[in-house]
Structure formats: C-alpha cells, structure tokens
C-alpha cells in the first residue's frame, strides 16, 4: 500500500495472513500425549466405564496458578498419576518434576487419601493450538458427570481493558467465568466486556460448557512480569470456597514455599543483578 507521501508499506492484517486460503499447508504444532501411571490405569479399569471417578478437578495453568496450587493445595498427600507432554526439544532441561522453570511437562495429581480429588498442574505454556489435543487427552479419561471443575490462570494487566485506567486499579485482581451448569456465584466479579480468556484455560472451560460440566474459571490479572507471591496469594480466597475448603490442609511452610517458587522463576533473570 502506498501512503499519502508515496512510501510503499507492507500491509499487515490482524485478521488474516497473506495468501491465507491455502489448503495444502500443514499442521505446525505437536499434539499432546498423556502417559498414565499403572495405578491410574488400574483405577480406570476398576471403575467399569474406564474412567477415573472425580469429585473435584482443579486445573492450574501458568506459573502463578501452579505456584498457588503447589503451595496451598497439593503440598501434602498427593501423587502423580499422569504426565502430559507437549513437545520437548533436545536442549530442554526437564526434570519431570517441574523443579525448573523450563520443565515442559504437565502433571495430573491425585489425593492419596481421597482419590476422587484430582489436580492438573500446567507449569509450561501449552500453545493455543495444542489446547484442543490437551483436553482430548485428559478429559475423556475422567468421569466429570458430577464433578466440580475449577480452572485457574493468570494474565498480564496490559491485556485487560477497562473503563478506568489500569493504573487506578488495585492489582493483582481476580475475574471469573462460569459454565451454565455452575449455579453458584463465583468469588470474584465476572470477566467484563470486552475482555476474553484464550488459550488452554479457555479450551478447558469450553469443553466443560459444551459437555454440561460444572466449571468455574478464575483469571488473576497481575502487573508483574515474573511470578511474585502477591499474584499467587491472589487466589487465596478460593481455598475458603466450597467445595475446595473441605480438601485443603494448612501448609505451615507456605511462605517459605512461595519464596522458593519466586526464586525459581527469577533466578535466571539478570536484569536487576
């Protein structure tokens, strides 16, 4: 496109790419694979319909939500029952326990003394393209008929649109969305227009909505680039909510754990050395 002054500018569109109507293009993402432990497979075969029975499923996406869940929910008495892998590169450091910020695996945990409580920790970025295959790997293996699904995620305040300047808002703050089946009132105000949630959390909630599962999503909007304890604590009201309040145990070392998680994510950042 030529401008008024005659310069020729490449025109880019936010909606479509150049020559975007090409059927021969190939998929450029890797599908997610799930590996279930023997114990999990055993429980599935025992249940009759080949699914894990479930009362509560918590899905945490991103460093803030996973950090919160790690500290306040699964700090005691949880075992890993499945790993979800979405494309490892040769040079990725992966400890298979999410002890490094680059661990490219997600894990499904189960409470040892109450196997109907499941927690999914996604510390890494599952790309929006991979989100569908992620849900297809995990949800069909869990009986969600009577389950309560809680999806936690975080986003940066720069993505949030509001009538008042973001600088006048108290950050971090929580916003929520619920599936039609969820009849309660969430603990935070709803995501207001014109804001949207995308990526894996959106895919999980969409799955619950179309399959008529009780689900609620909490998004924490934060202004810090690296995860910090204030952002993780933003989810704290949730542990007093039904039905989560019945399953959490107090963590006396919570502050210490939060500090370790913050360190883990800021250690490699040399900006303020």
């Amino acid at each position: 496109m030529a401008t008024f002054f005659g310069e020729v500018l490449p025109v880019i569109s936010r909606a479509v790419e150049e020559d975007d109507d090409n059927d021969s293009e190939s998929e450029c993402f890797e599908r997610v694979t799930a590996l279930w432990t023997r114990a999990a497979k055993h429980s599935m075969s025992e249940s009759g319909e080949g699914k894990l029975s479930c009362e509560i499923l918590i899905i945490a996406v991103g460093p803030a939500a996973t950090g919160f869940v790690q500290t306040y929910v699964i700090h005691k008495n949880y075992e890993i029952i499945a790993g979800l892998f979405s494309g490892l590169h040769e040079d990725d450091i992966n400890t298979l326990s999410q002890k490094t910020p680059t661990d490219k695996s997600c894990f499904l945990y189960r409470k040892k003394d109450c196997p109907k409580i499941l927690v999914c920790q996604c510390n890494i970025t599952v790309t929006p393209e991979q989100a569908f295959s992620f849900t297809e790997q995990i949800f069909p293996s869990i009986n969600l008929e009577d389950a309560y699904v809680s999806i936690l995620c975080s986003a940066h305040t720069s993505e949030y649109k509001a009538d008042i300047p973001i600088s006048d808002m108290e950050v971090p703050f929580l916003r929520s969305l619920r599936s039609t089946k969820y009849l309660g009132t969430p603990l935070a105000p709803y995501v207001d227009q014109p804001n949207i949630v995308t990526g894996l959390p959106a895919q999980c909630l969409s799955y619950c909505q179309v399959n008529k599962v009780i689900a609620v999503l909490y998004a924490c909007y934060t202004d810090s680039i690296q995860v910090d304890s204030a952002t993780m604590r933003c989810f704290l009201p949730l542990i007093q909510s039904t039905p989560i309040k019945d399953i959490v145990e107090k963590n006396p070392k919570a502050d210490e754990m939060l500090r370790t998680i913050v360190d883990l994510h800021t250690k490699h950042n040399t900006l303020y050395l």
Binding site: F132, P194, T198, G199, A202, S206, Q209
Partner: peptide
C-alpha cells in the same frame, strides 16, 4: 483457537 468470554 480457543476463546471464552462473557455474553457479548
């Protein structure tokens, strides 16, 4: 691509 939001 996935997306959710409140009633537009």
């Amino acid at each position: 691509l996935p997306l959710v939001g409140n009633d537009p």
